[in-house]
């Protein structure tokens, strides 16, 4: 399969790159900085997903070498945790751009190439912060709630192209993203899970593998949270 992963330089994105390379797929990843990883079936493209022109250029560059994209994984994202009164509206806007509008722009940019796949998939990233309505995560949670709407509505609008659109909502996973979140706050989140531990990369991969499976053609508009968080 030919897989495009945004936010491929570190964290979950880089773990996904390595996993799909190991599974013999071909991967193109984008991010602003270069990952510390090289492989003949992996290509890195420098792009800021909050810049629509750069996303278009990225999709165009991919189309030059790969006219068909099977999977688009909108993983790039950022978080910021602060009380509403301590959040600059500009910071909330920045999160909306990097979490929601980036997925919107990438879906739009890659639709032409996805359309030509036998089992086209778009996979988005949300978070357990949405169903848990976590205090102090308004800006992040709202941007990911928008990603959930995008997932459900795109599933309908792209159904006639047979493109499935789903999302995975990881529980806290040890990456840079949560490095600055105080320990007691993370523990409070874990306490609300059915299974009270951090998510591992493999847990996330498991959900994505399921969405990607050619046998999952009829699974679309779904959101799976890890750790036993329910809506």
């Amino acid at each position: 399969m030919f897989i495009v992963i945004t936010g491929a330089s570190k964290g979950i994105g880089l773990a996904l790159v390595k996993h799909y390379i190991e599974k013999d797929h071909t991967v193109i990843g984008c991010s602003r900085t270069k990952p510390d990883f090289e492989h003949e079936r992996f290509c890195h493209y420098p792009a800021d997903v909050t810049n629509y022109e750069e996303v278009q250029e990225f999709a165009f560059a991919v189309s030059k070498t790969h006219p068909v994209v099977d999977v688009l994984i909108n993983n790039a994202g950022a978080a910021s945790m602060n009380h509403f009164m301590l959040t600059d509206p500009r910071s909330a806007e920045r999160l909306m751009r990097v979490n929601y509008l980036s997925a919107f722009a990438c879906a739009r940019g890659f639709i032409r190439l996805l359309r030509k796949s036998q089992h086209p998939r778009i996979i988005n990233f949300t978070t357990v912060a949405v169903p848990l309505n976590l205090e102090g995560e308004l800006a992040y949670g709202a941007s990911k709630a928008a990603v959930e709407s995008l997932t459900k509505v795109l599933a309908k609008e792209l159904g006639s192209f047979r493109i499935t659109v789903n999302a995975v909502g990881p529980a806290p996973t040890k990456t840079n993203l949560i490095a600055n979140v105080p320990k007691h706050k993370l523990e409070k989140i874990l306490e609300q899970q059915a299974i009270r531990c951090f998510a591992e990369f493999e847990d996330i991969v498991q959900v994505i593998d399921f969405y990607m499976d050619p046998k999952s053609d009829f699974i679309t508009g779904q959101i799976i949270y890890l750790g036993g968080i329910c809506r």
Binding site: E57, P67, I111, R112
Partner: peptide
């Protein structure tokens, strides 16, 4: 409307393939 959307997608694709231009 869905056929219109498809037509536009096909057209953008043809423009990219034949003219090497990336337009929305």
């Amino acid at each position: 409307s869905i056929s219109f959307v498809t037509l536009i997608a096909i057209l953008e694709d043809l423009i990219s393939d034949r003219l090497g231009k990336n337009i929305i």
